[in-house]
Design a protein around this nucleic acid. Structure first.
Lengths: 219, 219, 219, 219
DNA sequence: GATGAATGAGCGTTCATTCAT
DNA sequence: TATGAATGAACGCTCATTCAT
């Protein structure tokens, strides 16, 4: 019994350490991928920064790509949480879209810059698995946005060109997100200018979807 | 005299062959970069596909990056020609923007898919020279679009939030271009669906800029 | 405790193996550089001869030049040890110079032929770092010889043409060393002839410096 | 007849041009080999500097090594002419040796620096033919010096340790020549210092051979 | 004779991944 | 579990030499 307790405690400690190592490696990779990009970061560097051996990195992650995928998924989760929260908070979908935009530019791109970089700067052209993940992320966020757009359309009582339209608009919004985020991330400017750019970008997005829902939208 | 003529003809033919080889290598590189990406394409592959030796590739191009830069510049030139043509043809800037959008989606992305891929799929993180090129391209196209947007604003007789606004809208439009183009290029769909998506995307853009110019725009 | 011991032993063995591999690679490089010269020896050959992969060579040495530098430094150290020992052993500087000469020709050039080849056969024209090393070696040995010559002059109570003279004589001696060594190393002859040549060369050197110290030298 | 004359004239002109081109290429190679070394000079550079195509270089010279060999032979011829002249001019072999030394340091190394560089800086480790040439040069100059030394010995009426001795002394002298020349060529100093160094070096050499000929040499 | 485009073997170096300890 | 030495395929690039014109 005592033995067992002891074992349990040991096991718990081990589990904690395990978890800690795992996070450490992930953080090191995140920082490096964000700073130098996936391709220019070597596994040795990740191991160094995590104060761990290369072998250990490979114990926790199947390969370098797997690391990127984990980080990508985490970043995606973070982003969707932020956007989702805004949509839920807001009573109307238009306001939700507006708030989501600001949350994206002012919160995600600034407070989680490294995550944003991994999501938007890492190019295509990695492994096949990663390619699937990227496609998946676009689809997921598109779907989130699509849903909001569909609400918006119903509220406005208008019809779309076809059932696909809302996902095209979603894609457009994501395009704006990505492009502006990329600019913020690669050429950081002072806070004021960033703020103003974000306002304009959100305006653009809102304009885009209002046009879509047509003139029936009340002013 | 005859000798001279002959020399001239020989020289001409040589010039032609030179040009031809140059184009062949460039095309091979274009196809491979578009299909597999810059990093995953080796110079040996380019040489193979051009039916030429590695040395010859290096005779015509200083290095691998130079090849990418040439292709990038060509693609950019092609794109700007197409967009510029549409803006010039159209009487009003709004119509110009509409036509430009359609030209981009229906002409550039379809007829020059490989060029589009090089412009929009190649990731950041290459050499320093290439990085400058990429930044430059965004700025050039942004400027083209900015100008049109400024016309549009003047016609509408309204003011922007600030002098930077038009370039932010341009960035947004470019974001939409890139995102939708990327979708077309990586997951080609049937022509009809593509057409419809393009219509929606253009609507989105027009909506974005109309909102910007505000309610003073006459219906 | 036992575990600890074991670890220590393991660590020791590993350290030994590490050291052994390091030496093996260095020896392989030494033999090849001595036989074929630096430029004509490829890293692959060094790896082959060490029964190790290319990657391993690069694990132990930053690059090919680094290998040469290590070997060069080792050879230089060896040579200076030998010369220094002779000067210290001998009561008078003239005798010291004589003994040093014989140690150089009969010991260094014969017993450490490969080291001598690396020191004297490798041409200028390698990397910038190596160039510095080569210059440094000439200076160091010159200084060693200079010091002995200065003693000699003081003992003889005579003056030099100018303060630089002793280093010129040192340079001359080094010139003789190099030339004769090069002959020995590239066209090995029977031991007897080698011995006789060494005697003559030492005579030449002694003559050179006696002349320098002038007629005040007692017969 | 007239035709023939014309042909002859044409032939002469052609011969002249041929000769001229040949010399031009050789000079270009000399300058480049002296400046950057054989290995770091490419055939393209030689062609460029000669304002001739690569093919032409290969028309006049079998390969790159052949160029070096020609230059080497020329340099050697020049050097031997200078040394030989001094020995012939002088009545006594000792004086001849002294004059030869000064001619070497003050004339050959200064006025024909590029030739000296090719003779003394180009390292071993080139092709097999070149290796033979280098050996040959040492032997030729050694023989020249040997002969003078033998005269000197006969004049002094003394015997050498053995029949080989004079060629060993010659080798030593050549060693001094090479080492000091190398210093002059790679680290040029002001004329005054150079002059003084040359004086010391010649003193050293004279001392070396006087010692050899033993105490029977009259003061 | 002269050209210069074409060749291709060869090189130094990197780095994701493995595995004995 | 953790280590880190070892692997080796792959890459971009150079340059002496050739040869059709």
């Amino acid at each position: 019994m005592e033995q067992k307790k002891k074992n349990t405690r040991q096991a718990q400690r081990r589990e904690r350490e395990r978890e800690h190592r795992y996070r450490t490696i992930l953080s090191a990779a995140e920082a490096l991928f964000a700073k130098k990009g996936f391709r220019k970061t070597s596994v040795d560097e990740i191991a160094d920064r995590s104060e761990v051996s290369v072998g250990t990195v490979y114990f926790y992650f199947k390969n370098k790509e797997e690391l990127l995928i984990h980080l990508f998924d985490e970043s995606l989760y973070q982003l969707r949480s932020i956007l989702g929260r805004e949509f839920e908070k807001s009573g109307s979908p238009v306001v939700g879209m507006e708030m989501a935009g600001h949350a994206f530019f002012d919160e995600f791109c600034i407070l989680h810059a490294e995550k944003a970089l991994i999501l938007f700067r890492e190019s295509p052209g990695h492994g096949i698995k990663m390619e699937a993940r990227r496609k998946n992320m676009s689809e997921l966020i598109s779907k989130d946005l699509s849903r909001a757009i569909d609400h918006l359309r119903k509220d406005a009582g208008c019809e779309f060109r076809n059932k696909n339209s809302s996902s095209v608009y979603a894609m457009c919004i994501l395009g704006v997100y990505e492009k502006v985020a990329f600019h913020f991330l690669t050429e950081p400017e002072d806070a004021k200018k960033t703020k103003e750019m974000a306002l304009d970008a959100v305006d653009f997005i809102i304009g885009g979807i209002q046009n879509i829902t047509g003139p029936t939208i009340p002013q």
